[in-house]
Design a protein around this nucleic acid. Sequence first.
RNA 1: GUCCCCAUCGUCUAGUCGGCCCAGGACAACGGCCUUUCACGCCGUCAACAGCGGUUCAAAUCCGCUUGGGGACGCCA
Length: 472
Amino acid sequence: MSKIITRFAPSPTGHLHIGGARTALFSWLLARHYGGEFRLRIEDTDLERSRQEYTDSILASMRWLGLDWDGDLAYQTKRTELYNAAVDRLLENGTAYWCTCTPDEVDAMREAAKAKGEKPRYDGRCRDKHHGPAQGAVVRLNVNAVMPAGSRVAFDDMVKGHVAVSVDELDDMVLRRSDGMPTYNMAVVVDDHDMGVTHVIRGDDHVSNTPKQILLYKALGWPLPVFGHVPMILGPDRQKLSKRHGARAVVEYQKDGLLPGALVNCLARLGWSHGDQEIFTMDELIRFFDGTNLNSSAAAFDFERLNWLNAHYLHETPADTLAELVAPFVAERGMEPAPDALARFIPLYHERAKTLIELADSIVRLMKSADKLDYDEKAVAKALTEEGRGHVRALHSLFASLPSFDAETLNTALNAYVNDNGFKFKQVGPALRVALLGIQNGPHLPDLMAALGRDATLKRMERACAVSTPAA
RNA sequence: GUCCCCAUCGUCUAGUCGGCCCAGGACAACGGCCUUUCACGCCGUCAACAGCGGUUCAAAUCCGCUUGGGGACGCCA
């Protein structure tokens, strides 16, 4: 089998969204599985909406996800000669023609067709007029010069199987706009052929473009690639993903403190499966993704599953790697992410946090100086009662005199305090925790205090007693 | 409107050429265990073959229709 070449071809009119990311992932996986190439092409022929910053953002997201590409980036705006040459060939071999109809005239035709209950389309009135190049003219494909009326355009899709449409459904589409730029379908065909693309993996929304493109391949006399149309990703309400569904762009997930591995894993399982396996490493995905087991029905994006996967990946990530990953989030919260502090505090929340944001919030709470700590009102009211503060004061002097401040010693001292005085742990523990953290839940107390160190621990206990004392 | 595609638990899905499926796994939910709190972890419960007709000894699996959903019909990509 010859080398397979896949590609991802985003248009820089927005950030990379999860639908595009999954398409890119599938293309990338297929290429990597078969040891082929994965190319990246920026479809920027829409001069109005294309922006460099979006190209940059898309590339950054691709890198973050770990999807590297082969060869140079291709920009469609830099390949106009290629498209023009192809259009000229079609003009020469009689499968394309100049059309001088104005956009308004074409609109009127579509309206008329619609009124008759037909598919809105251009009626081909310039086909035989033999117009030459003219100001404002476009070049259209003469569909019936490629395939006779009544015949069917068919292809075998990697995920959808056999798909066929009557050529009568297709109209004489514009190939070259009046400004000289190629239209999407023209550029895609020329580029995919030129780049040697063998497998075109793209979204479901392109199935109806495929017959049009097949016509172009035929008109140009080029071999057809294999097509694979992956189903769309829907929102939880099974509607097309949109703003109101929350995060759609990959960058938003990154900002939300998710791990790329978790997103990749989640995306991979949307429309693809490998038996009952839920968790995959990149290597496993590459090993198992061979273009089969693709699901042909649309899938709703499940944020709950992503969260679960993320928690899993977070727990699996080694503490030192995690330190590098949370550092930016800690800094963002106004704290210096000192390596030693990170190393001391991460273990306390490694198992507890579900996202880098949760982890950063917890760590920042521990890094703050005692006077900057904020207390949750409810927690204070519930635990730092008169009695609670009494325990905190007693423990304060007990801890102050401890020979060493390790978790073992603290645990023993704390238990001794509770047991020797006949208290219940519930009377003491919550008060101490709120005094130390300002909130009711958190790590095991001795571990927490050992990580905080004697100085910070005692300061926090002092501050807690002062804070909860009614204004004096 | 026309054309194309799709249809298994709330969600993602398993279900090789029909029998081993009164349908399996995972997330969520719920219950329990563990536990000095909260998480983690472990155990368990709930829950689906859209409907109707065929074909067949046998259908979630094949065929048809209905219904429901999605997509496409641009000098956007």
